[in-house]
């Protein structure tokens, strides 16, 4: 680790606003490492985010960044990508941002297989607004709006994206840093819609209410409950109740939306 991650940040904006021990800083770092390895020209990278603690990540990165509105990062990103398909567009969203208010945008971006790389910061809660449950809050877990425990079933956002048509889907955690970096790199190189779920920890709004008082308790929980998909596929591990898989979960090939759109433009102009 010889390169200085600071080269990728707007240093005047640091230290960041996140709480002590918040996992968002870890994902931000892993993302910066991925950008360094991808080595795209800086002015070809665009980072779009929605609203939430996680979405503040875009503002710290020294690239062209757009901090949009709650749930609408994907529509902005779609517009940017269509206006200039050569850009490498990354989309940062929280679990609430991407699966509740922005849930429809998510499934349709996946269905179109538009070449965007979405990184979902999943802290299982609405962090910024003080800990209301999100569609990714697991059953029985507590939130300010579920003081007796969540009674609804939660989404598996990776399976949701896969079912909707995403061509690259992976999951890692803030404990499994190197995997997260690798998934972001591979997702960026996939010519289509890529979704990477980064399981992160919100000590302030989630951990405190759910028996994990310290950030290190939360990271230990990730370590103990993440099961490598390769081991599951090889029959060497099973996913117990409350556990989740990590790794490259799904990949397939399908026509990409901006390319199909450019072809239509050519056809309409009689250039074909």
């Amino acid at each position: 680790m010889s390169f200085d991650v600071m080269d990728y940040f707007r240093q005047e904006t640091l230290p960041h606003i996140w709480c002590p021990g918040c996992g968002n800083g870890i994902i931000l770092r892993d993302f910066a490492v991925a950008l360094e390895r991808l080595n795209y020209p800086r002015d070809e990278v665009v980072i779009v985010s929605g609203i939430g603690c996680s979405s503040r990540a875009a503002g710290y990165l020294n690239f062209d960044t757009v901090h949009t509105t709650h749930g609408r990062a994907l529509p902005f990103a779609t517009g940017i990508k269509l206006a200039n398909p050569n850009l490498k567009v990354f989309v940062i969203m929280g679990d609430g941002d991407s699966s509740a208010i922005g849930g429809n945008h998510l499934i349709h971006a996946a269905r179109r297989n538009i070449d965007l790389t979405a990184i979902i910061f999943n802290n299982n809660i609405y962090g910024m607004t003080g800990g209301q449950f999100s569609p990714l809050t697991p059953r029985d877990k507590k939130a300010t709006t579920a003081p007796y425990g969540m009674i609804e079933q939660s989404f598996d956002i990776c399976r949701l994206a896969e079912g909707a048509g995403a061509t690259y889907v992976g999951r890692a955690t803030t404990y499994h840093n190197q995997l997260l970096t690798q998934l972001i790199i591979d997702g960026a190189q996939n010519p289509g819609f890529s979704l990477i779920e980064a399981v992160t920890h919100c000590p302030t709004s989630y951990g405190r209410r759910n028996g994990m008082a310290s950030p290190s308790d939360m990271v230990r929980w990730q370590k103990d409950n993440a099961v490598w998909i390769d081991k599951v596929r090889a029959g060497k591990a099973e996913v117990k109740d409350g556990q989740f898989t990590i790794g490259l979960l799904h990949r397939h090939e399908a026509p990409e939306f901006t390319q199909a759109y450019m072809e239509v433009i050519k056809r309409a102009r009689g250039q074909e």
């Binding site: 680790m1 200085d4 991650v5 940040f9 230290p15 968002n24 800083g25 770092r29 892993d30 840093n177």
Partner: peptide, 14 residues
């Protein structure tokens, strides 16, 4: 330590 610090407060220069 470097890769786990959420606040970029540590750097390991080998």
């Amino acid at each position: 330590c470097e890769s786990t610090c959420p606040d970029f407060a540590i750097r390991v220069i080998k």
